[in-house]
Amino acid sequence: MSSRRARALADLGERLLARERAAVAPALNLVDDRRPEARKEAAALLAALEEKTLLGGARRIGLTGAPGAGKSTLLGALVQRFRSRDQTVGVIAVDPSSQRTGGALLGDRMRVRSGSADPGVFIRSLAARDQLGGLAEAARASVTIVAAAFDVVLVETVGVGQSEGEVADLVDTLVYVAQPGAGDLLQFMKAGILELPDVVAVNKADLGPMAERTANELMAGAGMGERTTEWVPPVVLVSAQEGTGLDELEAALESHLESLGPNGLQERRRRGRDAGVRVSLERRYGSHGLAAWGGHAKLEARLAEAQDHSGFALAEALGQEIESALRGGGSDL
């Protein structure tokens, strides 16, 4: 990296931390760029940002659920609520459906619009590319950029299998949007959605009895998931179309944040960071590569040592160690 380029990069980081909206899109383009030179620059930028924002920065909320559950309408309603209190919002809309051709149809993520181009709202869509775990990594990078420049980050994704878990690692609070009549308790349990979400929103409360039944089923099952904390996910009936239940949803988001407390929140962010480092190293070097260097035990120890540092910086540093281990120098084998 030339020194002029390095200065421009440092400048980009400063502009983001100064919340300059015009810096967000170029930064996202950079961290999406696969060319080797850009990869290095992106890693430097992300590390610098995360050192500042890992334990602070924007409130991060995830929104997941099956297609047709009404996420787009709910997303629009939530954005309007944050905007009405003058909070700026960055949305990362993740499309996990991968295509043979690499093509993807994005957009149409927010059913309710203001009709004007509101500078306080930013939306970037991300498509699945071909590689395993690649989307989680790209989403983490994007969230890190957006979290530096906006008050609230919303990560929206279609719930398909493991993507909920990946989103849970990126946010402070994960909302699962359930569709009335989408299934009975057993199906929800099978789908594993009772474990991850912190808040469950049953959308389209105007469907009346069916929505209430679904809500009751979910409430009955909410305490049954395997959890590490005492938190029992509240189930809220909402109708984004009618504007009902949104107060309750916001209250649930708020009380989840309170239940975490400052320590819990930091803990959660560190856990997410750790997951990010793991995914990144496994993707790049595979489990054999990791084992050649010292395996997961060593990785966990290193993560614990550097618990308040950027995961991006850590992944770069550990990556270099693993590469030299793989070349045969300094192997612990």
């Binding site: 295509q99 051709t101 690499g102 093509g103 993807a104 149809l105 994005l106 957009g107 149409d108 869509s125 498509a127």
Partner: peptide, 14 residues
Amino acid sequence: VKARDVGMEVVYDG
């Protein structure tokens, strides 16, 4: 639809 079919990432908001 066609842009997606030839492998582009398409943003269409209606």
